[in-house]
Computed example of a mutant assay.
Amino acid sequence: MAEKATIARPYAKAAFESARQHNAFERWSTVLATASSVVQDERVAPLLSNPLVKPEELTGLIADIAGESMDDRTRNFLATLADNRRLALLPEIASMYEALRAEAENTADVQVVSAVALNDAQKQRLAAALKQRLKREVRLHCEVDESLIGGAIVRAGDFVIDGSLKARLDRLAVEMTH
């Protein structure tokens, strides 16, 4: 069977093109994220492969949860996925769509995991430095993980900077044992 990414790619491109044509990037992001969450729910996942559940019932379920963020285009897109029994691919489709959107908008979503919460000045300095390094507008997504002891881990796609004290201690322990 073909890889999920291979099957999901044309759907992600179709969603992206529709979003670009109708200047609806945010709407599509919201709908795809919501639909992705719904199909990953442990109560919904078994319904996706159940032949007794009709595609329009699955589309209706997602539409009810998505609410007003859904329009005719996004509903038709989900109906097409449901008709082709491809709703389980929504997490991959959403991820690929976001990558296409970020490329088009010249932005980068950067995950910052720090040992303590960053204040606004630290966030601004980090965003400015990353903007210069990545040559893109940067959207920071910050979270705290006290197990890092100190420092932070910065991820932007394949670009990773691990400046945590925990990582330094782990490297030191490896060097001392060899």
Results as ranks from 00 to 15, higher is better:
Asn76Trp: 08
Asp71His: 09
Ser37Thr: 15
Gly157Phe: 07
Trp28Lys: 06
Ala12Val: 06
Gln122Phe: 08
Ile153Glu: 04
Leu172Phe: 09
Thr74Phe: 02
Val112Trp: 00
Ile149Trp: 01
Val44Thr: 03
Asn106Arg: 14
Arg171Met: 01
Asp170Val: 10
Gln122Ser: 04
Leu126Phe: 12
Leu148Tyr: 01
Arg155Asn: 07
Ser36Tyr: 02
Leu48Thr: 01
Leu78Ile: 08
Ala129Glu: 07
Asn106Trp: 04
Glu103Asn: 13
Ala104Arg: 11
Ala19Asn: 07
Ala117Met: 13
Arg125Ala: 09
Pro10Val: 01
Arg9Tyr: 12
Ala5Phe: 10
Ala128His: 10
Lys131Ala: 09
Asp162Arg: 10
Gln122Met: 07
Asp41Tyr: 00
Glu68Tyr: 04
Phe77Arg: 05
Ala12Lys: 03
Lys131Arg: 06
Arg27Gln: 10
Ala79Met: 08
Asp162His: 08
Ala88Asn: 12
Glu146Ala: 06
Gly163Ala: 14
Ala167Ile: 05
Ser114Ala: 15
Glu137Tyr: 12
Gly150Cys: 04
Leu90Ser: 01
Val116Lys: 12
Ala115Phe: 10
Ile7Ala: 06
Thr74Leu: 04
Ala33Pro: 04
Ser49Gln: 14
Leu134Phe: 05
Glu92Val: 03
Leu100Met: 05
Ala99Met: 11
Arg20Gln: 15
